[in-house]
Amino acid sequence: MKRILLFSISVFSCVISQAQEQLAPDQNPNYKVSMAKYQTGQEKILEGMGTTSQNTYKAYDWFEAKQQRKQDRLDFRRKLTLARVNSNRFTDYYRWRRRNVFFYR
């Protein structure tokens, strides 16, 4: 009786597993290869879901470039002034500034 019961359980489980393995019409029989590949790293892929990935580029704008050049020039002059002030040659900054005010405006 026990044997019959065990046998019937094993047959039933085999039938169920086969039913689960059954392919849908026209389904690729090798689908598990791809499934295994994507089931491992899926979390990383799905991280950006519902978000905007910013892959922006810098467009050249003549006017903006001109303004940037002006700003760069001003920054450079400011840095130059500070560098000269910090150097040992100029101990009295205000005196030096008064002397060079026409050149570094």
């Binding site: 879901m49 519902g50 905007t52 990935s53 910013q54 892959n55 922006t56």
Partner: peptide, 12 residues
């Protein structure tokens, strides 16, 4: 389900 939107423009 909403996936990813890719912004490939020159602005944020």
């Amino acid at each position: 389900i909403c996936g990813m939107i890719s912004n490939k423009s020159h602005e944020h």
